[in-house]
């Protein structure tokens, strides 16, 4: 799981979502490796047998834009996950990337290791930005699009989000799965989406 926020670093609601997802998956006996950003030196935390969190600082600083920030961090995320794959016996079959920040890391890992990925979009740049035609927003929008284009499946958290993604990124609706935030079904639906993505693109293929 690639997420730019994860407790204790909480920027918005996504940190809680990512943490809950990681813990619930681990409870379902799925090996979960989380790579996230943190300003302190690199640390690997073994939360449990099933859940390991890697916290990486940015190798470059200061930064001139959030795009340069995310993209130098990308190489570091690729480094950490490559190390897990090469040196640890932990298995990774699928990547779930949250938001646009680490999309390029997921795409690189897909090209290099044949790892399929799912992207979970919590919101869209076109909605967040007050000027989505600005040069910086168009870069972010482009990275977001790259994620929707290269992923096996996209998880949207509501039907309205699904139609927004279809509209903004011209994505066929067959590529999108809606996982509603219903306590009874969200985890089951997320796992189903993962399994479907793996059927579409088996690991290593």
């Amino acid at each position: 799981m690639l997420t730019w926020e994860f407790p204790p670093r909480i920027v918005g609601d996504m940190a809680y979502y990512a943490e809950r997802l990681a813990e619930e998956l681990a409870r379902k006996k799925v090996d979960v490796t989380v790579v996230t950003f943190h300003e302190a030196p690199y640390a690997r935390e073994e939360v449990s047998d099933r859940l390991v969190v890697h916290r990486v600082p940015n190798p470059v600083g200061p930064h001139v834009s959030v795009v340069t920030w995310a993209l130098s961090l990308t190489a570091e995320v690729q480094r950490i996950l490559s190390n897990v794959l090469y040196d640890e016996s932990r298995r990774i079959d699928l990547v779930d990337v949250h938001e646009w920040q680490f999309v390029v890391a997921a795409v690189g890992l897909k090209k290099a290791f044949g790892l399929p990925f799912v992207i979970t979009l919590h919101s869209l740049e076109a909605q967040r930005s007050n000027d989505s035609s600005s040069p910086l927003s168009s870069c972010i929008n482009g990275l977001e699009w790259l994620g929707t284009y290269e992923c096996q499946l996209l998880i949207a958290k509501s039907p309205s989000m699904k139609s927004e993604v279809e509209r903004v990124h011209k994505l066929p609706s067959s590529k999108i799965r809606v996982v509603a935030q219903n306590p009874q079904s969200w985890l089951k639906q997320t796992l189903q989406t993962y399994q479907e993505a793996l059927r579409l693109h088996p690991s290593g293929g």
Binding site: S65, V67, G108, K111, A112, P135, L136, C139, G142
Partner: peptide, 27 residues
């Protein structure tokens, strides 16, 4: 070739395309 706020941000975006293509070639 889309607009970027500054040269360094362009370099980052150019590296995205460069790394994806290079990864395919390496593979």
């Amino acid at each position: 070739k889309f607009p970027t706020p500054d040269f360094a941000t362009w370099v980052s975006m150019m590296n995205v395309n460069l790394s994806i293509k290079a990864a395919e070639i390496m593979k």
